[in-house]
Design a protein around this nucleic acid. Sequence first.
DNA 1: TTGAAAGCGGTACCAC
DNA 2: GTGGTACCGCTTTCAA
Lengths: 333, 333
Amino acid sequence: MKDIAKDLGVSVVTVSKVLRNHSDIGEETRERVLKRVKELDYRPNLTAQSLVTGRTFLVGLIVPDLVHSFFAEVARFLSNALRQEGYYLVISSSEEDPSLEEREIDQLLGRNLDALIIASASASPAIFRRIEEQQTPFVLIDRQFPGFPANFVGVDDESVGRLATNHLIENGSKRIAHLRGPESTPGVQRLAGYKHALQNSGLKFNPAYLLSPGNVDVDSLQQGYSAMKKLLAIEPRPDGVFCYNDPLAIGAIDCILDAGLRVPGDIAVIGCGNLHFNTSLRVSLSSVNQHSRQIGECTAQLVLQMIKSKTPLPPRNIIVEAEVIARRSTLRS
Amino acid sequence: MKDIAKDLGVSVVTVSKVLRNHSDIGEETRERVLKRVKELDYRPNLTAQSLVTGRTFLVGLIVPDLVHSFFAEVARFLSNALRQEGYYLVISSSEEDPSLEEREIDQLLGRNLDALIIASASASPAIFRRIEEQQTPFVLIDRQFPGFPANFVGVDDESVGRLATNHLIENGSKRIAHLRGPESTPGVQRLAGYKHALQNSGLKFNPAYLLSPGNVDVDSLQQGYSAMKKLLAIEPRPDGVFCYNDPLAIGAIDCILDAGLRVPGDIAVIGCGNLHFNTSLRVSLSSVNQHSRQIGECTAQLVLQMIKSKTPLPPRNIIVEAEVIARRSTLRS
DNA sequence: TTGAAAGCGGTACCAC
DNA sequence: GTGGTACCGCTTTCAA
């Protein structure tokens, strides 16, 4: 920039103003500057710009697992939506480990990102108070904390659990098991929805049918397989299984088929997430759609709003409607 | 930092030195500074640090598509490996569009990232010369440009094509079709490997059996399905199909089954990428493993090396061995 | 319309 | 050991 100024015999201030199309600048001067900028293929140093303006045009994203398709899809839509406005995504995976998540948040806070988006693996919202202190706008996605007011975008997980369970009931299942998720809201709420649905239909909740496969967002296929194995050993055996996510469900189906049973004939199975490949599986998988696209795009809009508004906005709660996508794994027909 | 200095009656320089454990500092002073740092929960401003040191501890990653599992996996392993050294990944998707890729590269260059990692969607390496001029170290992954010396990490795609085709031949296929990829190296080389394998086995290459499904890294299931439909109309119909990637292969299998034919009985199918769900599909899918993990981790190591070495290193070519993972879709047994 | 000066939050160099 | 000073590359304020 200094060079340009020197070359043209103007000041750096002038150049700076031209680059940001500041109003008061001579038409002729502006042209000359622009011309030289092209010639030199000059690009302003965003780091320096950030230092003085306090804006980095960077948004952080922390998810429990990038390979889990749901988060990869959210990341993609987020990234695309933010790009339209010149923002970029800095990603980080917590590997479903709360302490790692905390370290990552600290790291990212030190980078003065314009906002943070977090699908938390933590049990408590303590860490988020730190973010608030730093004045960094942040949005929780997928998982939230009851009683902790914060911006949130996600589905209503109670209704996810209810829809899935009702769907199984409507298709003839009586003894419905649940492979539950972690202790975060989606896991807890889906479980709650599951119980409510049973209750409303006059079915009784059998604790033996409730399993916690462990680290479900990592290596879920395996987890689903072994959890299902345990369920098969129970007498009487369940005839329907609602799984916290699709990979778990796929693992469960593999186990059922390996045991010589039929899906959905003997046991119906439904998952959550509505992954791409669900239609191509051995038994195409019914699933509750979580609308990764809408979540990604809504979150992007919310984040941009927050960044642009100088005064902190009151926390918003954006809930995307869930819906059952029925396929072979539940349709006894 | 200024506050800390003032509070303690020392200079900012001293504080700065303590924070970076500079050798020459009084034991007592260091303790006092550290104490105050804790009290204030002070975190150095990385932006400012970057401006003066020229290092951002940020690495850019541009891929054609984040949802394509292969790249999501690479991103994950990369991100984890870089994190160990305090580096973060800034991601961007080119959506398989060369002009968008170029804009993204420009954007990221302006951010003074410490390095760039690119799975390019471009046909020509022109844009990369710009990166070289900027002195930003960069590594190409998955796709490279013949005759353009640059750091590269990926598989030997000619061998991928050869292995896959040979595998089909060994399992009894005589009329082997290929759903090819884009004009970038993986597409071109795998095609070359396919032709070589045919030749070496005395089979003749039939141009009618070669199809370009279009934008294969996006919405591949659909593309695979419709491409396969065309192949089925050919007389004589192929009895083996080598697909550029797994989603294409899955789409192809769906099409074959829908047409009332059997896999691998009537037509054997093999893909590339070895995705997670391949074992759970209607017909478990044979695939050439591209080792996303090794690619991610090797790339991370290479990038770190380049960043740390002050003198530019000669371009390296890291080739990861490909291997066939045989499953039902090709085993006629 | 233009530009000089101050400063964003740090680091490097070199004298004390 | 410690600290003064210049400076990284850009924006902001305000005077000319």
